Amino acid sequence: MHFPLIPSTANPTLASQLDDAINNKTKPLGSLGTLERLARQLGLIQETAAVSIDRPAMLVFAGDHGVVAEGISAYPQDVTWQMVENFLAGGAAINVFARQNGCALSIVDAGVKHDFGQRAGLVDRKIAPGTRNFALEPAMSAQQCATALEHGAALVADLPGNVVAFGEMGIGNTTAAAALMHKLAGIPAAECVGAGTGLAPDGILRKQQVIEAAAARHAGVDDPLAVLATFGGFEIAMMTGAMLEAARRRKVLLIDGFIVTSAVLVAARMAPAILDYCVFAHCSDEAGHRRMLDALGAAPLLQLGLRLGEGTGAALALPLLHAAANFLEQMATFASASVSGKSA
């Protein structure tokens, strides 16, 4: 399928203006550290030195995975739909953190093995009741993958604000994410797998073996879209489409943990310029996330020992985006405050 080109954020003139604006605030040079880098990135994305955080939205994509039949999760598959019910009832961590930070929250059924019916707060974009088992066959058809990408793009097109945060839910999706990492980043499976929802060491080894065997079975699959269809999940594919469209519309992409980052990895292999739009919220405690971030050249904002998913790390990082925008907009300059600058 075809996606429009993502515009580059490279703009030397604006970059110089942003650097001057940041450096002339009433502070020692560089003393706001990562917030200065973030403010500069926001300005380049928004094509202005008057940056803003406007109506941020959190999209949490949910889907089930056929690969759970291989015994790669500490939790049963029913937990996916049960957690979606928890989201809809407002009782999950992401509900708490999204409310706390004024972030609109939408739950997207990308392919959960459950019939929810029409529900307030639930966006029904179900492709199928879960993917197939990629240990035996491709997780989805090329058409299913294309439809998931299209649905994700359409969801973003309807969002009014300039920041999109991404979260996910799906028992088995750390295995899918690790397989995508292994195939697209060329990192050994042993360095991609982790405990997920809480696997013991023998369960982690089992996950590694499943991924290695599946990679051997699908050895000829190399194109990013084909890799996504073969090893991914409906929620990961839908996120990928949403990310590509959000970047095309020059929105800020606020990236959560391991599974969400795997969608970025797919998108970046399709359109490398997307990385200019990504703010990586945190480095999770899921084994492999640091390696995946390094493979993308990403510098996460936080390291809180999180490995929950749901978009929780992204929601927790949202105040830092507000802080970066606010200091650039509201902080006095040396001239306006009649404060002496650094002597030569």
Rank of each mutant, 00 (worst) to 15 (best):
S141F: 04
P319M: 12
K126T: 00
M239A: 11
V193E: 03
A21I: 01
C192P: 05
I259A: 04
L244D: 00
V96M: 08
T240E: 04
T261Q: 07
P138F: 11
E47M: 11
H151L: 09
D222F: 10
I6C: 00
N24R: 09
Q118C: 11
A153R: 03
C278I: 06
S340D: 14
N23G: 10
T261H: 05
L296D: 03
A229C: 08
A10K: 10
M238N: 00
A314N: 04
T34L: 14
S343N: 09
D294K: 14
R37M: 15
R125L: 14
T34F: 15
H289Q: 03
A271R: 07
T333C: 09
L321I: 13
A226Y: 01
A21D: 10
G167Y: 05
A214T: 06
G102Y: 07
A213D: 12
A135F: 03
E235P: 14
N86E: 10
G66A: 05
G186K: 08
P76K: 11
N24D: 15
I94E: 00
Q118R: 15
L149C: 06
L159P: 01
L105Q: 01
D158I: 02
A226T: 09
I22Y: 07
A325H: 04
S73E: 01
T175D: 05
P188Q: 11
G111A: 06
H282V: 03
R37T: 15
F116M: 04
L228Q: 01
P76F: 13
F134Y: 12
K27T: 01
R99H: 10
A128S: 13
L293F: 08
E329V: 12
V51C: 08
A200V: 09
L308G: 07
I274W: 07
A128Y: 02
L306P: 00
E36Y: 08
A69Y: 07
T13V: 15
N133Q: 12
L184A: 05
N173L: 02
G313N: 12
V264C: 09
L199C: 03
R125S: 06
A335D: 15
I45G: 04
F231M: 13
A120M: 11
E137V: 04
P138G: 08
V221I: 14
V339L: 13
E329Y: 11
